[in-house]
Design a protein around this nucleic acid. Structure first.
Lengths: 293, 293
DNA sequence: TAAAAATACTCCATAGGTATTTTAT
DNA sequence: ATAAAATACCTATGGAGTATTTTTA
């Protein structure tokens, strides 16, 4: 079977037109070169050089093999390099799932920082709910997921790292009686109509808000569950109810809305970076390290 | 150094996800496969598979190497094939020098025949005089040359094969007194003005005609030496003189000209195929064989 | 416990190195 | 006569195969 070592010898001979010189170049001896060429010629059943003790002349077949061998050897060298770069996370792909809210806060800068360190990785972003992310992880469709803390039954499969902490805030229409307060207790809103983000899209957020109301001794009257935060803001601005949502919502178009902090302790809304620690791609590993710095 | 054999084992393992199965596929034993993978991993200083006794999972670096290895192995296989085809003259280039007259006779059909047998050879034609062909041979610019028999001092360097035999003919204007004869002796033309093809372009033709006249006991009065045969015909048709040229000239535009054979023995005009027998490319060899059949 | 990869160990093929021969100018 | 490739021969590396151990679900 055609050996790479023989091809190297062949290229050296073709270049130098001299077996002995080729041997010197490759730090070996002339008979070794002779054998390499002979073995190639035997395998191909074709003369590669017309030679005698006075000169070495390449044949047409030799010219062809020279082209091929040069390409092969370059490819082998390149293969080593690229495989190594892949192992270091310098080239390859990185697929990231994220909640829409991540785009409102840290994600753009984080990706930008990563890209500046790893410009040759092909990053693909997928907007996904938490449960879609779980599914995507199982199907190997994403390497990293930005979402809320995972349900307890899943935490053993994943490593998680808190990236961003947000707090709930009340959103009132500008002309609401309580809109000019610095902060307010949720209990003050017990008789209001509530607009909350859709439960199917974000269970933990919805249920967290319900719990919070119950801690304040009331069950909220929920009159709307929009699937987009912008719709929630518009609904509130229209005077159809009051909203409770993470503060990052204020990065959207908020005309007509007033954000009022909740007094006392309100639950934190965490955004975490999740990944499967066992099958972590080098690009994902590099991204995580990048997010630490 | 990365061995092709190791790459083959690697591809088999990556495909089958099982060392033992890969060994069976490659007609060897499992420890050999283990060693091949280990040696690759050692050279690259990177894990290619995450594996234990229950499963084999390729890494990102492994995925990259799989792409590369597949390409490398295909290229190596292809290199063998293409080198062999080159040796057989099935692919490559063929550079042919020829005299313009060759185009009037056998050359188009011969090339067509060759191309039908060897459609993947890139044929290049160069219109050249005999002496240009000699120079081109020395500079390795042509593989084959179609021209006249070579001067004696060169015949040892070349192999030559007669391809086409032509005879001299007299060319008269249609209204010439001798134009209606079936044949004529050159001596009948001793007092005519002669138009001959240019001596610099074709020495042996010119000198051959002069000798022939002298054998007929006269020296021709040469009034024109055009460098193109078509010009010679036009000159004759215009009544400026009579021509002597190879019969193949009659394949040009001959209006106003009458071709009359020379009685008795007239010298033959040979077109030969010349080549350097020692450095004969496989494509040229195939062409020569093709021209024999 | 079973199946599969890793390791240990032996043996042989073969690649490399030295010395010599052949060959062409 | 000389320079360079081919050949002969020896040595030693290392690759292949066998047997065994380790590992994990």
């Amino acid at each position: 079977m055609m050996e790479l070592k023989s091809l190297k010898s062949f290229v050296a001979v073709a270049t130098l037109k001299n077996f002995s010189a080729a041997a010197r170049e490759l730090h070996t001896v002339q008979p070794a070169i002779s054998r390499h060429i002979l073995s190639l010629e035997e395998e191909l059943d074709t003369a590669l050089f017309i030679r005698n003790t006075r000169y070495v002349k390449i044949t047409a077949a030799g010219e062809q093999l020279l082209k091929e061998a040069t390409e092969i050897l370059a490819l082998v060298e390149g293969a080593k390099l690229r495989t190594l770069k892949t192992a270091k996370g310098e080239i390859g792909t990185l697929k990231i799932g994220y909640l829409p809210s991540a785009c409102l806060t840290f994600l753009p800068q984080l990706i930008k920082k990563y890209k500046s360190h790893y410009p040759n990785v092909e990053v693909t972003l997928f907007e996904m709910t938490v449960s879609q992310q779980i599914t995507a992880f199982e199907a190997n469709q994403i390497d990293l997921g930005f979402s809320r803390p995972l349900p307890d039954n899943l935490t053993s499969n994943f490593d998680s790292k808190t990236i961003y902490t947000d707090r709930l805030t009340v959103i009132l229409p500008n002309d609401h009686a309580l809109a000019n307060k610095n902060q307010l207790s949720l209990y003050e809103l017990k008789d209001e109509a509530f607009i909350l983000f859709n439960r199917d899209e974000a269970v933990s957020l919805f249920d967290g808000i319900i719990s919070l109301c119950q801690e304040n001794n009331f069950s909220p009257n929920i009159v709307g569950q929009p699937k987009h935060m912008q719709t929630l803001l518009t609904t509130v601005a229209s005077g159809l109810g009051v909203g409770i949502a993470p503060y990052c919502t204020s990065a959207l178009f908020t005309q007509g809305c007033t954000f009022v902090p909740i007094s006392g302790s309100s639950p934190t809304i965490l955004t975490q970076l999740h990944y499967k620690k066992l099958l972590l791609s080098p690009t994902a590993k590099a991204f995580i390290e990048c997010s630490d710095r």
